[in-house]
């Protein structure tokens, strides 16, 4: 499992997670479209694909197939590591 801290350290990767929070289950094309049209992100499709690979390695994004299309889903479970390590005091 990759490092969630490194995965979260990049603003574009955080934006990808934001978009998956708004609508889960996006294709690479949809993620690229949303970043470009809604946030003015100018990264190439290849760069976004690499960002997704880092997020997937950290367990924050899962992929599965719907028909022949690969979709990306948010998985926030690894974030628990943060509050387990540094508990939020009430």
């Amino acid at each position: 499992m990759g490092d969630i801290f490194r995965a979260l350290a990049d603003p574009t990767r955080r934006q990808i997670l934001d978009e998956l929070t708004i609508r889960d289950g996006l294709t690479l094309f949809e993620i690229c479209g949303r970043l470009m049209m809604l946030h003015g992100v100018v990264s190439s499709r290849q760069a976004i694909s690499q960002h997704l690979a880092v997020l997937e390695e950290a367990g924050l994004v899962h992929t599965r197939r719907v028909g022949r299309t690969k979709i990306h889903e948010l998985n926030t479970a690894p974030l628990r590591e943060i509050i387990d390590r540094w508990p939020i005091t009430p």
């Binding site: 996006l26 294709t27 690479l28 094309f29 949809e30 499709r45 028909g67 022949r68 299309t69 690969k70 979709i71």
Partner: peptide, 10 residues
């Protein structure tokens, strides 16, 4: 076609 469909590209 397959490669486009995989990435959700119309």
């Amino acid at each position: 076609q397959r490669a486009l469909v995989e990435d959700g590209i119309p």
